[in-house]
Design a protein around this nucleic acid. Structure first.
Lengths: 207, 207
DNA sequence: GTCAATATAGTACGTTTGTACTAAAAAATG
DNA sequence: CATTTTTTAGTACAAACGTACTATATTGAC
């Protein structure tokens, strides 16, 4: 990619993350990038194009980390959500302004919506494998794992927001807190065998 | 309260809920209320005053519904979160723009932050009672119920957002979906005795 | 080295927004 | 009924913002 274009995206990301999308003007971006507004406009005709570019950058990064180690299913399962979340942290402006962005940009909204549906199907598939391998228990309630997915989805998408409505800044610590929240939400669905594995992975969580 | 002031608040709430806080100008509010902008300004000197007034209306409404029937602890516990959520639905603009609002308004941010801390303490107290009454199991992991509270908090605050990043409108159906999500997230922490009660409350959820 | 394409800067325009200000009307007070 | 207070409307303003437009500079192709 063009060097200037690249610089614009990096500086935009910084500003968006720090100040929130609606508090960053094109003039701010141009200043921070050390270029003129005219030049900025040359590379990104519309303000929305910058946001779209960043969104698809994010999606691409996340898509690149999908893999499951078949020899250590539980650990892989737990790792993936944290790996994803670490990337989300880099682009947290997006999650903090999720509503604003999807309200304005139907392209991103549609894309995310389809992404989410695919993720859910994958999640249920993985859970099936975990059940077959004796790591997750069977459902005790109807759609129990569908419901679990939804909860994890909400927490993944809005954990940063949840922190920022009370705290003043977002730190990397939030990733570990997220990890704890997610792993503990999964714990009750583990079989006794898997609970032993869990204890080995997170010894500090034991009472 | 003054009739005009009352009308302004009602119409503002409608507009905020429908369009999102940042898409509603003072002129919009004045039009919808059938008054002039000058008059609007007379009743609310600053735009932010309207939002603050609505916030404290919301808090007051929620504060008025706290009670626990001691003869049916589990049912009460499950009911309360839905009761709260039903009121939140009336003011959902607030949750949809939670970040924007707390970023700009330190008074609301501080108030909510303290409210949240009180809620957490209450939650843990109720859980202790439920454990003592043989309805909830003991903690199997450190701070397991603290972690549960956090997850419920995130879902309560951002479930509407989670729906709206994919759907185009918010309906009352979202309250039932929320209820399902929360009750199922609590199920794994119930004792066998309480699971029987749960089955009686939600027979349709059984496999 | 010439010419075309790309990149950069600077300015200007049209809109929107919150709000300050003024004046008139309505209501309340005595 | 007179006057004071409250309520309402209308206008005006200053700031900010996205972006369209023009002109200059740089780079690349042949």
């Amino acid at each position: 990619m063009n060097a200037t274009k690249h610089k614009i995206l990096i500086k935009s990301l910084d500003l968006f993350n720090d100040c929130g999308i609606s508090n960053v003007s094109l003039r701010d971006i141009a200043n921070k990038s050390g270029i003129s507004v005219g030049n900025l406009q040359y590379h990104f005709k519309k303000r929305e194009d910058i946001i779209e570019a960043l969104y698809f950058q994010l999606v691409e990064k996340i898509d690149s980390i999908y893999f499951i180690k078949t020899d250590d299913l539980l650990q892989s399962f737990l790792n993936i959500s944290v790996d994803i979340f670490t990337i989300l942290y880099e682009y947290h402006f997006f999650l903090l302004d999720f509503i604003t962005i999807t309200r304005r940009n139907k392209k991103i909204k549609k894309h995310y919506s389809e992404l989410s549906k695919r993720r859910e199907i994958e999640f249920i598939k993985v859970v099936d494998v975990l059940i077959k391998n004796g790591l997750f228990r069977e459902e005790l309630l109807k759609n129990e794992y569908h419901s679990l997915f939804k909860r994890i989805e909400v927490i993944s998408n809005f954990w940063f927001s949840s922190i920022l409505i009370q705290a003043d800044v977002l730190s990397k610590e939030s990733i570990e807190q997220y990890s704890l929240l997610i792993s503990q939400s999964i714990y009750p669905y583990l079989t006794n065998e898997a609970k032993k594995q869990y204890a080995a992975i997170f010894p500090s969580q034991l009472v």
